[in-house]
Nucleic acid binder design. Structure first.
Length: 565
RNA sequence: CGGGGUGUAGCUCAGUAUGGUUAGAGUACCUGGUUUGGGCCCAGGGGGCCGAAGGUUCGAGUCCUUUCACCCCGACCA
């Protein structure tokens, strides 16, 4: 491509609303432009990068025998009503009517559509397993789009769906896809972790997320410093805590604690480690068509993990609750405890099971119980509801710490969550009709493009990896009026182009500094500088990642470039 | 959906408290000259329904009402 003809609208100034490096540089370097909230155009350079990523995905999916297809974007809402998600998905699902007044949705994910494609066509276990995928624009009407491509409303996602006759075969495919995804991210040049994840609203028996490590990530993941363990904090677990400090041994007794409400105050009042206190967290659990107040109890030094808490109840979510609502049902804020709690449902964290010498609220203003033996609560509802903290001990004995991650992939063992309600069945070896055992595997393509920039940039601009660069080589003619420079530039350009190298010739009538800054902003891996050194028979290769210039004899430049690319 | 903020040239922003020539700067763009190793320089030029609608006023970018859009914090997020 000749730079003089290329549509690459670079700019010195970033859009005022851009926060993240990826957003700033993709906009400034002319890869993307914003249309409306959460909607972006892919300009020529951006489109090339997207294609690069898609090609890598296609190759790795091909390698595990997954087959690409493409489903229609506009989906009749009947399918969504069959699965029950038409009502459940909420306002993120964009619904509309056609001229005949029929309901449609814009696909935010395509479980229903894919099940619909195979049902009645795959009817025997002999046709299984099968893995079908597409790379396609998705639409989710996000409540709050942000961070440029990271959380748009319209985005490109690769979504794969596998169908199996047994859970064992699903396990095999799940591992195969995980490995394929790892290869994809490695080829893209990304630092990432595969972590245990909460299965969320999509349902299913297990899931993992692929997290690109980045401070700008929206997810918090807990990672072990010793073993391979990593998990989203929504699902992270640890070794049982051993409390080193001395237990506050006491006879069971009601103790006056005037106006002592918080864990900090209690800890100070009794001079005791917070681990010996029972923390209570009140919340409202939201179900499909009802809600209730629930009290969660944890060790005083732990925090409640909302997602775990909701899962412990089978609730959709838990939300904060006003103090006045607590009073209405007779709860005493600041002094709530699990003993004899008959006003609302309670859930206790597993770490409280059989705990001795605990201090907890007495459900009476200004009083706590001391010397509480939690084993009296053994019949109560216990669950894992704590949130792993930095410094907690991993089950392997190592230390857990936090990292921020960008979720670029999420793989699920779905089971029959969709095949059963959609009546997608096959006949097994015994001739029995069974719903497909399914897996679903998502990967955010446009988000990957932003992730590459998040991990690979400096204050000058993008630094594309070889596998993602829109063009590998930029030939810069320093002075377009110097006919020798032009001649060499043109010759090298033709040679590289004819040998399949993706190359740009910067033949613009601009000064050296301007063109260099532009090249650095865009982030071509290599720029060949044809400048005043040509008089001495030399040109230079500028490597974007190191910002180093290497002298090369002009006669040898073609071979040298071919070595690099 | 709650709280906050911003809408003026392609882009980044002044101007709005206190209404008053023809609405500004930088940058980008066009023309000519000049320059060619780090976003030069000189001269000239085009470009605006001051987000939209209504109102107050002799007069509104500026004041009032309504509305739309975008952004930030939170909630939400297969």
């Amino acid at each position: 491509m000749r730079r003089s003809k290329a549509f690459i609208p670079t700019s010195k100034e970033a859009p005022s609303d851009a926060q993240l490096a990826s957003h700033i540089f993709l906009a400034r370097a002319g890869f993307t432009s914003q249309v409306a909230s959460g909607l972006y155009n892919y300009l020529p350079l951006g489109k090339r990068v997207i294609k690069k990523i898609e090609n890598i995905i296609n190759e790795e999916m091909e390698a595990i025998d997954a087959q690409e297809l493409e489903l229609s974007f506009v989906t009749p809402s009947d399918l969504w009503k069959e699965s029950g998600r038409f009502d459940k998905f909420g306002s993120e699902l964009l619904r509309f009517k056609d001229r005949k007044n029929n309901d449609f949705v814009l696909g935010p994910t395509h479980e229903e559509m894919m099940v619909n494609v195979v049902r009645d066509k795959i009817t025997s276990y002999k046709q299984l397993p099968i893995n079908l995928y597409q790379i396609k624009t998705k639409f989710r009407d996000e409540a709050r789009p942000r961070f440029g491509l990271m959380r748009g409303r319209e985005f490109i996602m690769k979504d794969a769906y596998s169908f199996h006759s047994s859970a064992e075969d699903l396990d095999r495919e799940f591992n195969a896809v995980e490995n394929a995804y790892k290869k994809i991210l490695t080829r893209l040049g990304l630092e990432f972790r595969v972590v245990e994840a909460d299965s969320g609203a999509i349902g299913g028996s297990g899931s993992k997320e692929l997290m690109v490590i980045s401070d700008s990530g929206e997810d918090t993941i807990a990672i072990c410093d010793t073993c391979e363990y990593g998990a989203n904090v929504e699902a992270a677990v640890r070794q049982n805590v051993e409390i080193s400090s001395e237990a506050p041994e006491a006879e069971f007794n009601k103790f006056k604690t005037p106006n002592i409400k918080t864990m900090d105050e209690l800890s100070e009042f009794f001079s005791v480690d917070k681990a010996y206190l029972v923390k209570s967290v009140a919340a409202r659990a939201m179900y499909d068509d009802s809600d209730e107040i629930v009290l969660f109890f944890l060790r005083g030094d732990d925090n409640l993990q909302d997602v775990k808490a909701a899962n412990s109840l089978g609730a959709n979510e838990i939300v904060e609750i006003a103090e006045s609502d607590l009073e209405k049902v007779g709860l005493v804020s600041g002094f709530m405890g699990p003993l004899d709690m008959d006003k609302v449902k309670i859930v206790l964290d597993n770490s409280l099971k059989d705990a001795k010498n605990m201090i907890c609220g007495a459900n009476e203003s200004d009083f706590h119980y001391v010397g509480v033996d939690m084993s009296v609560m053994s019949e109560a509802n216990f669950a894992d509801i704590y949130e792993v903290k930095e410094g907690d001990t991993c089950r392997c004995g190592g230390k857990l710490f936090y990292k921020k991650g960008i979720e670029v992939g999420h793989i699920f063992k779905l089971g029959t969550t969709y095949s059963a309600p959609l009546k997608a069945n096959f006949l097994d070896e015994q001739g029995r009709s069974q719903p497909f055992i399914m897996g679903t595997y998502g990967m955010g393509v446009s988000r990957l493009m932003a992730s590459v920039v998040e991990q690979h940039h400096d204050d000058k601009g993008c630094i594309w990896t070889k596998s993602t660069a829109p063009y590998l080589v930029n030939i810069m003619i320093s002075n377009i009026k110097d006919s020798d420079q032009v001649a060499l530039g043109e010759k090298l350009y033709e040679e590289l182009k004819n040998n399949g190298v993706e190359v740009v010739l910067d033949d613009r009538k601009d000064r050296f500094g301007f063109k260099m800054k532009d090249a650095e902003l865009i982030g071509f891996p290599y720029t060949v500088i044809i400048g005043k050194e040509l008089a001495n028979g030399n040109v230079q290769i500028y490597t974007r990642s190191t910002c180093e210039k290497m002298d090369v004899s002009s006669s040898n430049i073609y071979n040298k470039v071919m070595e690099l690319v």
